[in-house]
Structures are given as structure tokens and as C-alpha cells.
Write a protein that binds this DNA or RNA. Structure first.
Lengths: 240, 240
DNA sequence: CGGTCATTTGATAGACATCAACGTAAGTGG
DNA sequence: CCACTTACGTTGATGTCTATCAAATGACCG
């Protein structure tokens, strides 16, 4: 139950414009609707380009309008950890709201468009905005906790499957097909997010494909047997 | 740099009332000062007692005034993950601000006192409160990310050392000695938080003690050689 | 003082990391 | 248009960290 509310991670965007079974314009888009009357600064970014980096002066909040992004934290000694993948409707920079500088790196994984939100003005002039921001902050915490649970208690296969389900669910929310996933990150990035090596990610995907549960063609993955994948989650619950 | 701002996890409370070198009344206590004029409902809890559990109707926010607590999420199939240890100055229930029910379990690890904060009223009547809550939410996210980094990229020894440093730092902020740590959680709980087994935690502590870096007597741990411990962190940076 | 729970330590095994090649795709420049 | 380069992905062999299993000791409590 908690899980349903929490799980999240990944995106794929412009292709696959099929109709979703559940309709469009979900929670994710509510911020966009809220901001329709505002003249927002837009910013285009290309793949591998940083939106901002930890330590830079915080100018604004960014609302993802298109494209895929990764957020990451880095330690002094260079260890990096991808904390999430962001897509349309996600807000970037929230985690530094109380700071003068950004607290994480955000990199575009493909070309995308961002809307620059002037936080202070929106907060003061748009009453629902503050509330929305609070909700987004809280849900980010729950999402993080959910991933901590996943990474801390599940084995490699189950982590990957959890990721695939989460990505599929997010895509579906945006109106895309939940069965054809276009990964925008490398195996290494996926592995980093899941606390696995890139080789392990590859092996898991191959394994799942061999069992007929998914189809893998590079970064294009299709989900063939949802129940089978659910079984993977239920079965060998490694650890603890 | 990021790390310093982020790391956090653990507490120990009433004993060790030594003077801290850095003075008192830090950021952590600012909420208490802010609330001095308010008549707050207080609640006493005993060890092993739940403050609230995930799914229960959300009544209020709780400010920890005394005692130690653990927050945990649980999946449908019973996997549990401790997401943090909370002490004086921490706010409980923040992660569910936008929900009708709590999103995690909170259990007292010893006797403690909580102050019940009526969120809606405080938000409306105390302007600085909203701001404070936002800051706390954001810093919880950064803290979570920092632990994700630690758990995802460091080996067992380094996780435990990171934990000890974090705990020591938090204790110092509260005015206690940063060198004598009274753990309030079992090895199993510590292991759960660090994504290790209780046996591994025990072994690491024994190992560090054998090297003369710390002293271990059950749940009482004293830090003997900070530099030596720093070395552990620098050295064998396992993984990736 | 028996009984439960927490901690410690040892022996063993397994899952995943590491190391090493090789295959594939895409982009560059001659 | 095709070597050449570079980045990414796949697969295999091997190693190791830490989980698992097991047992003994100690602490606390009714």
C-alpha cells in the first residue's frame, strides 16, 4: 500500500503517443494548468547538458515540460549517486528551497524543455502554489524511502523489475503505453541508481528476456508478461 | 561539501550533560523557541511504543522534545526499512503533510516526550512556521540522498563509521559529548538502517575496536581515534 | 532462576563485483 | 563510402564481501 503511493523513477517521452486507457491530464499536469496564465521563461537543453550543478547559486525552480533528466549527488571524494530520473511534471531544485545554492546535479538525458519558475513570486501571489510545493516535497521523501526499501531489501532481479514497473507506471500516467519502454539512460546510470554494476543490470535484463518476461533491444524494452514479472518480485526475496 | 550538509541519522539523549565546545541553542531548537508562546498538547511515550503507524489518520505533527525514535516504512509483503532515527528537534509526520494518513511508522526507542503541533493553525497564524516546515522537508530529502549515496557506494565498515560520525555530530549539536555515544537501537535496527545484517554490524564494531579506533561495550560506544576512523572512510572505498 | 532477547563469534555459501574480451552502433574524417 | 574511433552493451571467468546458518555467552525480567 505504501509502495503504490511511493515507487517511482523513470521516463521516456515523445514516441508512443497511443491513447492510454485511463485518460490524460493527471495530477502530474496540475502544476502546468496552475501556471497557464503566467509568462514563464523557457529553457531548452540538449542531452548530456547540465541544468545546474550542486553548489551553483540557486536562481529558480525548473518545471520539466519535456525530456528526461537525472538528478545526482556527489561526495567530495567523487562517489556519485543518481537519486532519481525526472520527467514531465517533475520539479527540479525543490531540494534546495531553503538554501542559496543547488544541492544536486541535474543532467539532461535527451533534449528537453524546462520552465523557469520564480519561486518567491509564485509563493506570494499564487496561494495554491505553496501547498503544491509542500506536497511535492513530501512525496519526494516518500519516493526516496520507497527506493531505500527496495534497494535495501531486494536482490538484483527484483530491483530491476521494480524499476521497470515504476517506469511503466509513470509513462502510463503521462499517457504513453506502459508496455514499451524507451530507456534514456545507460546501463551504468541505471546500475548506479539501483546500486548495481552495469554488468549486473545487463545480466538481469538478459535473464528476464531469456525467461520470456520482457523483450530487450538495447535501450528499448517491452514488457511481455506482467504476471511473470510480479512473480519475480514475490519469489526469491533475498535478504533479511 | 554536499555531504556535510546532508549526513544524518542517529541520536542518544539524556545522559552526558557535558558542556559542548560550540555552545547551545542551534538551528535544531529554533522551532521550540518559535513555539514558546503556544500552549501545546504534550504526549509521553515509552520504549517500543508506536507514536503512529502508516495508514492511521493524520492528526498532527509531532515535535520531538525528548527521547529517541525510529521511523520505518513497510512493504505489503512485510519487508521493513528504517528510514531514520529521530531526536530532539526533529519533526515527525512531515512526510505525510499532503495526505490524510501517516506514511510511515514511528516507534519510540526509549521514553520520550512529544509536542503535538496543529499544523493548519500554525501555518495560518505563524508566518515563519511554513517556511520552517519547507526547510525541514528539503533537508530531509538531502539527508535521504546522502544516505543513499553512503549505502550505495560504501562497504560495511565505512557505513558504520559514517553512522558513528553522523550520530556524534548530531549529539554534539544538542550539547552532548561527541565521543561517548549511547546507542538506543539494537544491532538489528542499526543493520536494517545501514542495509547490513546484525552480524555484520557486530563484526565491524569488533573490528574497529580491535584496531583501537573505538571502544565498544554493548550499546555504549566511545570514539577513541577520529583520524583513524577518517582513514577507514578514505581507504578501501569498495564498489564502483 | 528459567526464559527471552540481544550480542558476539565462527564456518560456510552465495550473490554480485571485478576483470577481461568481444560485439555492436554511431559518428568522424579521409 | 568506408576505415577508424569512441561509447555502449553483452557475456564469461573469477574473486570477495557480506549474508546465512549455527552456537555460545551475557543481560534483563517476571
Amino acid at each position: 500500500m505504501l509502495l503504490d503511493a511511493l515507487q517511482r523513477s523513470e521516463p521516456s517521452n515523445e514516441p508512443y503517443l497511443e491513447a492510454s486507457t485511463t485518460g490524460r491530464a493527471h495530477e502530474t499536469h496540475s502544476l502546468e494548468r496552475l501556471l497557464q496564465a503566467w509568462p514563464l521563461q523557457r529553457r531548452r537543453v540538449c542531452a548530456k547538458q547540465y541544468v545546474f550543478r550542486a553548489g551553483q547559486a540557486r536562481h529558480a525552480l525548473y518545471l520539466v515540460h519535456a525530456g528526461f533528466f537525472k538528478t545526482a549527488v556527489v561526495s567530495e571524494d567523487g562517489r556519485e549517486k543518481i537519486t532519481g530520473f525526472r520527467m514531465r511534471g517533475d520539479l527540479l531544485g525543490l531540494d534546495a528551497l531553503d538554501m542559496p545554492t543547488y544541492a544536486c546535479d541535474v543532467m539532461a538525458l535527451d533534449t528537453g524543455e524546462l520552465w523557469e519558475l520564480p519561486y518567491a513570486r509564485l509563493r506570494d501571489e499564487l496561494p495554491q502554489f505553496q501547498e503544491r510545493v509542500t506536497a511535492l516535497l513530501a512525496s519526494e521523501i516518500r519516493r526516496d524511502w520507497s527506493w531505500m526499501l527496495t534497494l535495501g531489501t531486494l536482490g538484483a532481479d527484483q530491483r530491476v523489475v521494480t524499476f521497470l514497473f515504476d517506469l511503466a507506471s509513470r509513462l502510463e500516467q503521462l499517457g504513453f503505453s506502459p508496455n514499451r519502454l524507451q530507456l534514456r539512460m545507460t546501463r551504468a546510470e541505471l546500475g548506479n541508481f539501483l546500486s548495481l554494476t552495469l554488468e549486473t543490470v545487463t545480466r538481469v535484463l538478459s535473464r528476464l528476456q531469456a525467461r520470456g518476461l520482457i523483450g530487450v533491444a538495447g535501450r528499448e524494452i517491452c514488457i511481455k508478461d506482467r504476471n511473470g514479472l510480479q512473480t519475480v518480485l514475490r519469489d526469491n526475496t533475498a535478504y533479511h
